[in-house]
Amino acid sequence: MNGDKLHQRSVQQTTTILKTPSNISINSLNLNKTPNYVQKTTEFRNHFCWSLADASFLKWTTADAFGLFKNHPIPCFFAVSLLFFMGVEYTLLMIPPSSPPFDIGFVATVYLHRVLVASPTINTFLAGLNTVFVGMQTAYIIGTLVIEGRPRATVAALFMFTCRGILGYSTQLPLPEGFLGSGVDFPVGNVSFFLFYSGHVAGSVIASLDMRRMHRWELAFLYDTLNLLQVVRLLSTRGHYTIDLAIGVGAGMLFDYLAGEYMKNAKAADDTTLYANRPRLS
């Protein structure tokens, strides 16, 4: 008799376990529902196909292609240059560690370098003129602040020389072979200096850009001409690599722009502060 009760109790427990709870419906499980990741994949595929069907290049015509070269020659030139230098880069033999760096500016100024080697007096004279030019650009940049009350060029120079110090210390390039130093060259005393990038060139660019903003066209042209002669002399004396001088031009433009943005934001902040401190009429 106890066995019958035990069997009956087991059947009841099994029935209770298999019984569906009253608050869950089989229909609510929706077994035919598409999984979420499948829906995401389908939506992405449909969106991609739609975007590809509306792609811009499918609407290009032959007239558009020829018009591109006619109306936008500079980007087209850059595109051709990209392909050319990709070929150069993949076929160029690298300079071995034991050899001095290759510099195309040094190759272009071989004759002038020989002249300066043979004539130390000319080298010293040109170095002195270059130092005078550095003094001219320094005086102009500081003068825009202390005399004219326009700090942008000074802020740009501070930004530029700080960044130059960081980069110049981070990667210290070897002094080029055949370097012709001079006691009157800047920095005066023939002391060590950072090669990357050229503060001579960057400072000249900052001064020239400020002159153009003030419509001092003749002075700006003079500074640009002297800057170009400075570049030739620095290459001839092996005082800078070509990349130092090229980045110097870009650095002057960049930090002049950043200084302008800084001044604009500073002025906006000052205006906001003044407006906030004004007494209200009510």
Rank of each mutant, 00 (worst) to 15 (best):
H240M: 01
A157W: 14
G260H: 02
P96E: 06
E43S: 11
D4K: 09
G199C: 06
V110N: 06
T144K: 12
F102D: 05
Y275H: 05
A202V: 04
K33L: 12
V146K: 07
A156R: 03
L274R: 09
L129P: 01
D4L: 08
D270F: 00
M214V: 04
H240G: 00
L195W: 02
G168V: 02
L18R: 11
Q8N: 14
F69Q: 11
V201T: 07
I243W: 01
A157C: 09
L235K: 00
V107R: 11
A108I: 03
R150D: 06
S208W: 06
M253F: 10
K5V: 01
D256S: 13
T272M: 04
T121K: 13
I206S: 01
C163E: 10
R238M: 02
P101K: 02
F159G: 08
E218N: 04
V191K: 02
G260T: 01
P279Y: 09
I142T: 15
V232G: 00
M136G: 03
F44V: 13
E261K: 08
A118K: 14
F186L: 08
C76I: 15
R164I: 14
Y275Q: 07
S10G: 15
P35F: 06
H113W: 00
G248M: 00
A259H: 04
L180Q: 02
D256L: 02
L18S: 14
G189D: 02
S99N: 13
T109Q: 04
P73G: 04
Q13Y: 14
L18A: 13
T225K: 00
F179A: 06
D224V: 03
D224S: 10
H113T: 05
D64W: 07
Q230R: 05
T109M: 07
E218W: 04
T109R: 01
A251S: 04
T61M: 12
I24C: 07
S10E: 15
L254Q: 00
S28K: 08
L145S: 03
F77K: 13
V146I: 15
E177G: 13
F69V: 15
G149L: 12
P35C: 12
V146Q: 04
I147N: 03
T16N: 13
R150Q: 12
V115Q: 06
S10V: 10
I95S: 08
L82D: 10
H47P: 11
V132T: 03
I206Q: 01
C49S: 14
F133R: 01
S119I: 08
P101W: 14
N30Q: 15
G250P: 11
F194Q: 04
E177P: 04
M94G: 14
K70C: 10
L175W: 12
A108F: 08
S119H: 11
L222E: 08
D54S: 15
C76W: 06
